Amino acid sequence: MKKGIHPDYEEITVVLSDGTEFKTRSTMDVKGDTYRSEVDSKNHPFYTDNLKLQKKADRIDRFNKRYGKDN
C-alpha cells in the first residue's frame, strides 16, 4: 500500500438513539471519538412499520390537495 494516502482506522464509540452504545473501528472523522446516531433500526420507519402509515397519509394528503378538500 502507498503511504500517506489512506485514512486513519481508529476505534470509535457509536451511540444509538436509545442510548445503547458499542465500540467499533472506522475511518470516520468524529468529534471526541463518539458517533451519535439519530436514526437506527429502533426508530426508522422501514423497521418500525410506520412507513405504511406514512405512505397512506401521503396518499390522503395528495387526494385532498387534488380535489380541494381542507382539513
Rank of each mutant, 00 (worst) to 15 (best):
T24E: 09
Q54N: 08
T48L: 10
I12R: 05
N64H: 09
K65T: 11
D8I: 14
T27H: 12
N71H: 02
P7Y: 15
A57I: 06
D58W: 02
D61F: 04
K65Q: 11
G19F: 05
S17Q: 10
S41I: 15
K69A: 03
G19R: 00
M28T: 12
I5W: 14
G19P: 02
V30R: 01
D18C: 02
A57E: 07
H44K: 08
E21W: 02
F63W: 10
R66Q: 07
D33F: 01
V30W: 00
D29S: 10
S37V: 08
K55Q: 14
V39S: 09
R25I: 04
K69P: 00
D61Y: 05
K55M: 13
K3L: 10
D49T: 11
H6P: 10
N43R: 12
D70E: 08
N71M: 01
K31V: 09
N43G: 09
E10D: 12
Q54K: 10
I5E: 14
I12S: 01
P45S: 06
D58M: 05
G19M: 01
K56P: 00
R62I: 01
L16R: 09
R62M: 04
T27C: 08
S17H: 14
R66E: 08
K3V: 12
E21D: 07
T48D: 03
K69Y: 07
V30M: 00
K23C: 02
Y67H: 13
M1C: 14
D58L: 06
D18V: 09
R36D: 04
T34L: 00
K52L: 15
T20A: 07
G32E: 05
R36M: 01
I12W: 02
E11F: 02
L51Y: 11
K56F: 04
D29C: 04
S17P: 00
N64V: 00
D40K: 04
E11R: 13
Y47R: 05
N64P: 00
P45L: 10
R62G: 00
N71W: 04
S26D: 03
V14K: 02
D49I: 10
K55S: 11
K69Q: 03
T27E: 10
Y47M: 09
K2Y: 11
L16I: 01
M1A: 15
K3E: 08
E10K: 15
D40Q: 03
T34I: 12
M28Q: 09
N43T: 13
G68T: 08
K23S: 08
K69V: 13
E21F: 03
K3A: 12
I12G: 01
V15H: 03
P45I: 11
K65I: 05
V14P: 02
D33V: 00
G4H: 05
V39I: 15
D58R: 09
R66I: 02
Y9S: 07
D29T: 12
R36L: 00
